[in-house]
């Protein structure tokens, strides 16, 4: 264990926060979505690092599940984006404010 677990976790935290910033700052729905994927990736990195630290596979399995769930989410999310685009011709999330208050 030359590189410490902590380093991996720190890296993952940085990536996670970057992803969160992406969600907050980008207006393109696809971009927001990609930022969320980045957050999930960061969580995966932390999980794998912890899995090596603990020496059991649970963390890796968690990652496996997260990746697959992300695939499902991506499919539905992109379908939603396409559907919205058909109706509104825009995927700018700032234009989605029919309902408020």
């Amino acid at each position: 264990m030359v590189v410490q677990t902590e380093s991996f976790v720190m890296l993952s935290i940085v990536l996670f926060v970057l992803g969160a910033m992406g969600v907050l700052l980008r207006r393109n729905a696809i971009m927001v979505f990609m930022s969320i994927e980045l957050m999930l990736n960061a969580a995966n990195l932390a999980l794998v690092a912890f899995a090596r630290y603990w020496g059991n596979e649970t963390g890796q399995l968690f990652v496996f599940f997260v990746i697959t769930v992300a695939a499902a989410e991506v499919a539905v999310g992109l379908a939603l984006i396409v559907a919205i685009f058909r109706s509104k011709r825009s995927i700018n999330i700032d234009e989605l404010h029919e309902m408020k208050g």
Partner: peptide, 17 residues
Amino acid sequence: LRQIQTGYVRTYALSLL
């Protein structure tokens, strides 16, 4: 309070954060 509910996704995400 209902002013918080702007209708913008990003502000919702902000409140979540």
